[in-house]
Amino acid sequence: MNEEQIKKLLLAVGIVFIVVFFLFPFGWMVIVSFSASPDFLIKGNLSFTLSNYKDILSIRSLHFLNYLKNSLIISGIAALSSALIGALAAYAISRFKFAGKMLIVLGVLALSMFPQISIVGYLYKFMTRLRLINTYSALIFPYIAYSLPLALWILLSYFSRIPLEIDRAAQVDGASRLQILRKVILPIALPGFVSAVLLLFMFSFNEFLFALMLTTDFRARTVPVGIALFQGLHGEIPWGYIMSASVVSTIPVILIALLAQRYIIQGLTGGAVKE
């Protein structure tokens, strides 16, 4: 066997590994979500049903649709706000000269590595005092803050690749700084902005600990907390409900990941991965 063939073989093995290892839990999720009882492996009673889906979408006391709605609204608002705030800051950092610039960038970067648990205790007290526990605000504000380092990091790498002469031209053309950001820089860095919004959305959509501590019921509870705390009507873990709820809630993120994988990979790597 020559080298080219060995390489092809290794590549094939790698692809099979990726597909099997990464996908089989998803397959299992889907199978269980469509089966009448989760113990079919030992009982041998695998039967197809849509009742899990029907139930989580129609039984109001399960509140799944509330969780989903809360998650989408909270993550959507947080992602957009964080991307916009991040864009303002990234513009200032990539364009203006000022003392302490490095300190701000590195400081914000360090913040992104703070463990949530060291923030959430105090945040709980803070939100309680403001009477915000179990509201959208209790999650939106911390989510914006917690995702800002990511937003700044992505947008900064895109903005700093746009030559400064473009800004100067726009300044000479009479544009204010805010106009330059809105009408020139953001449109040019649109792929970066899209990557940022998608990643920030996923970031907030997937967050668990803040949501666990700062919400108490369906009025603000998000999907991850809902799925973690799902209690069946009769005590036993309702696997059918959990898996069908998981399928429904992962559809948006799976679609984003598959259709926009290019943007997501570029966003995560500061545009280093092309195509």
């Binding site: 990726i18 597909v19 990464f22 996908l23 839990p25 998803f26 299992w28 999720m29 996923m202 959509f205 997937n206 668990f208 999907v223 991850p224 907390v225 799925i227 973690a228 959990i242 898996m243 998981s246 809630s249 992962t250 993120v253 799976i254 984003i256 990941a257 598959l258 259709l259 994988q261 997501i264 990979i265």
Partner: peptide, 17 residues
């Protein structure tokens, strides 16, 4: 895209599976 999936979905859902 497939290589992104386990990381893209909520950790809680992966954990439940």
């Amino acid at each position: 895209g497939i290589s992104l999936l386990p990381w893209a979905i909520p950790a809680i859902i992966g954990a439940r599976i």
